[in-house]
């Protein structure tokens, strides 16, 4: 972890790329979607086959924000040809990239959550859990704790959401694996508490695949 952060700081990056961010999350014990960083079209196809179709392609760089708006996210690609076309479309934008992220496609069930970390001027490093997806900022259904937290705290954070019913069995979907979510929150709290270099972390969304929470995007912002 230290290595990823040190390299980014040496390059004066403001943030980690999605690929690096996810690597860090995985090391901290947060379930993330499987993905590879392809440097060429051929590599992208090879990785897609390794992961199994369908896949997702995303332009990957530490300076890239608003990926979707820029047309840098290609969802649910089912064939080698789809992958090749998507790769070209992303590369043709002419935006400098580290590579193209090839990510497994996971079926979600409309339930989306958000995990995050900030440094509060009064309380220091904090973690957040909340309702994710398109309504995140409108509903502001979130719960904060000061890092580090225990697993008891993590369960209480989940219990605090007004929309906590979504974590139970809901409209044909099974109850979410809360133990995994609690583990992710504890891991996140240790990460922000240990690494001074990190300013903020955003894991949005966490989707629910079967009953398992999986992060399909992540962003680590570095201290300036």
């Amino acid at each position: 972890m230290r290595e990823i952060l040190e390299q980014a700081i040496a390059k004066r990056q403001k943030a980690l790329s999605e690929f690096d961010s996810k690597q860090l999350m995985k090391m901290a014990g947060i379930p993330v979607s499987r993905n590879y960083l392809a440097k060429s079209k051929e590599e992208a196809i090879e990785y897609a086959q390794k992961l199994g179709f369908p896949v997702v392609l995303k332009g990957c760089s530490d300076t890239l924000t608003h990926k979707t708006e820029l047309g840098m996210v290609k969802l649910k690609l089912k064939t080698k040809k789809d992958v090749a076309n998507a790769y070209d479309e992303i590369a043709d934008k002419g935006i400098p990239l580290d590579g193209v992220l090839v990510q497994e496609w996971l079926d979600g069930d409309n339930r989306e959550f958000v995990l995050g970390s900030i440094r509060d001027p009064q309380f220091g490093p904090c973690v957040m859990f909340g309702l994710g997806g398109v309504f995140t900022e409108a509903l502001q259904d979130v719960s904060f704790r000061v890092a580090p937290i225990t697993s008891i705290d993590a369960y209480e954070m989940m219990d605090e959401l007004k929309t906590k019913k979504l974590l139970g069995a809901f409209r044909g979907s099974p109850a979410v694996d809360k133990e995994m979510l609690a583990g992710a929150l504890v891991g996140l709290s240790e990460l922000i508490n240990t690494y001074e270099e990190i300013a903020e972390i955003d894991i949005n969304p966490i989707i629910i695949n079967g009953n398992k929470p999986v992060a399909v995007d992540a962003l680590v912002i570095l201290k300036q």
Partner: peptide
């Protein structure tokens, strides 16, 4: 003004409330 969603959601009272629960 914060760079992340989490930052935007972290009003002074929401963090205080979390600390209190904890």
């Amino acid at each position: 003004a914060a760079a992340s969603h989490t930052g935007a959601l972290a009003g002074s009272y929401s963090v205080f409330k979390g600390a209190v629960q904890q």
